[in-house]
Write a protein that binds this DNA or RNA. Structure first.
Lengths: 150, 150
DNA sequence: GAATTTTTCTTGCAATATGCAAGTGATAAA
DNA sequence: TTTATCACTTGCATATTGCAAGAAAAATTC
């Protein structure tokens, strides 16, 4: 970016993001899928925020349509559906972690340990990589079960 | 952050952030105040998204209550009200810019020039500082008018 | 192999939130 | 003194949400 002139394009990237993550429930589902290893309808439903079933179904469909979640049926157990985060969803990790660091600074009731923000600030890239690796691990484990049963 | 153990706290920072910025309109008002130099009710109202007046009033009050906006009446012209971004609001800049960079990558219709993401990635701190300086400049200008008339 | 359970949703309905248009009150300008 | 501006409020039709119940398709248990 140039250092002495204000960019004159009209804020559309914010609007695009608002359309996808600018919704409380989508935001929390993304947290669950990116940070808490959740992949199934019933796991999302069990979250502490108590999303209702119709809203959950609606938001999962919306996130799938936005290419944030990849819906796959377990070939070994057709009643089980898994929602995997896409590359596009994974790529919100930096922004997600960044806003979480902000929350730990301003929420007096934060449950996040100080080490969370400190670790991120010390080495942001390593922190993101760590979460990505977790996602890889979880998805690989599920896909392995898909392939050679149980 | 430790590199080999998953943090076990329960995602509250995401929920805190969702409560404040996890709303389309709050998100866009924050964009306007942090990135577009808007400070007054009528400026927010004129935005291209067409927020309705009751919703705008509601969200401004919500953001003020969340300590994101500082509402001040122009002492020289009592019919004019200014909403200034607080330090807390300014501190969402890194996350806001980060999600905007994400949008430029995934929105095929993005209006942001490639230089935006490139500039941020080359030197994130300088980019944030540039926006902070703009905010300082705008607010100083308004406050100066507050003091010596006109 | 019949009955129960699990899992992923769908439907109906009351409550809440939103969008739109019009109105209000307090300045400020003409 | 009249008109205009600015920051909201109010009323009402429509849309979205939350809650509870249901339903279809497996999968498991007996």
């Amino acid at each position: 970016m140039t250092k002495d002139k204000k960019p004159d394009w009209d804020g559309c990237p914010t609007r695009y993001a608002a359309g996808i993550v600018g919704d409380k429930w989508c935001f929390l589902i993304l947290r669950d899928v990116l940070l808490h290893g959740k992949r199934t309808y019933s796991e999302f439903l069990k979250g502490p925020e108590g999303i209702s079933t119709n809203i959950l179904a609606n938001r999962l469909a919306r996130l799938e349509a936005a290419d944030m979640l990849d819906r796959q049926i377990d070939p070994r157990k057709a009643s089980r559906v898994c929602y995997f985060p896409t590359r596009k969803a994974r790529d919100v990790l930096p922004a997600l972690i960044s806003i979480m660091v902000w929350s730990t600074k301003y929420d007096p009731a934060t449950e996040a340990p100080a080490s969370f923000a400190a670790g991120y600030q010390a080495d942001p890239i390593a922190a993101i990589d760590w979460y990505e690796a977790e996602i890889d691990r979880i998805d690989a484990e599920i896909l392995a079960r898909f392939d050679h049963g149980q």
